[in-house]
């Protein structure tokens, strides 16, 4: 059974139709990349998958593990194993990163029927994962994303993915705002999470990230539709020729 199945998805924001019939199937173990110019609907797709308010799905459906994803509230989707790495992680003053991670992990565990981790187990569990991503204890003590640099925020996103161990990770422009060293750390973190059971949907504007996270499939999203799909070589082609060839517009 596919992990994620998007069928003819149409969606609007206000009066404007952003997605005009998306079809996409992701099987366990696969990494899909969605590329596309600005304003093509990439972030809209990721928000709709995660269940953010303000988007109206006018047609189509999304099955996650065979279940109707769109009828689930945002937190249930997360518990069911859908993770969104935000392009712009939200700063939440007053909420310590550790408190946040613990609350989230125990919510997800409860959903799966696991007991909550005690303080010591939790600390070790997080530290182990934090170390790999070069997330310091100091960052964990600070309020969630407050005062974090762009790179720190993205590392924190990947740490959350590592902590929550989702079935499907949707990574929205995870490479934006990262220098090459930070990009490598983030990509390694993501690659370490690749398993035969887990799916990934990597959303990006540039091919650069895909040098480090090698996708099985690449799709071009433009004007609210997937205009072309192919293997990883499609990304290289796009890098060389721009989106113009595919979208029919002037090269960006």
């Amino acid at each position: 059974m596919p992990l994620l199945e998007i069928q003819n998805l149409h969606a609007t924001v206000g009066d404007k139709e952003i997605l005009k019939g998306i079809n996409l199937v992701i099987k366990p173990g696969q990494v899909h990349a969605i590329m596309g110019p600005n304003g093509s609907g990439k972030s809209t797709l990721s928000y709709i998958l995660a269940g953010r308010d303000g988007y109206d799905v006018t047609k189509g459906e999304v099955l996650f593990d065979g279940k109707d994803l769109l009828s689930m509230p945002a937190d249930e989707r997360a518990c069911a194993g859908l993770f969104l790495g935000f392009q712009y992680p939200v700063e939440i003053p007053g909420v310590a990163t550790m408190t946040f991670l613990k609350t989230a992990l125990n919510a997800v565990r409860a959903y799966r029927g696991d007991d909550p981790l005690d303080a010591m187990q939790f600390l070790n569990y997080v530290r182990e994962r934090a170390m790999v991503l070069n997330v310091t204890d100091d960052m964990l003590r600070r309020a969630l994303n407050v005062g974090f640099s762009g790179g720190e925020k993205k590392r924190n996103e990947i740490l959350q993915m590592a902590v929550l161990e989702p079935r499907l990770a949707v990574l929205d422009e995870t490479d934006s705002g990262l220098d090459i060293d930070a990009l490598k750390i983030v990509a390694e973190g993501v690659n370490a999470m690749r398993t035969p059971e887990r799916g990934m949907l990597v959303i990006t504007h540039y091919q650069r990230l895909l040098n480090y996270i090698e996708p099985d499939h690449v799709h071009v999203l433009a004007q609210g539709r997937i205009l072309q799909s192919g293997g990883k070589e499609l990304a290289l082609e796009l890098e060389k020729n721009g989106y113009g060839d595919i979208t029919g517009a002037e090269a960006a």
Binding site: A50, G51, R52, D53, P73, A74, D75, R77, A78, C79, F83, L84, F86, P89, V90, I92, F100, T103, A104, A107, V108, Y111, Q160, L164
Partner: peptide, 10 residues
């Protein structure tokens, strides 16, 4: 939304 997207209920 950010909190909910991490599995924490409303």
């Amino acid at each position: 939304f950010y909190l909910r997207s991490r599995g924490i209920d409303t």
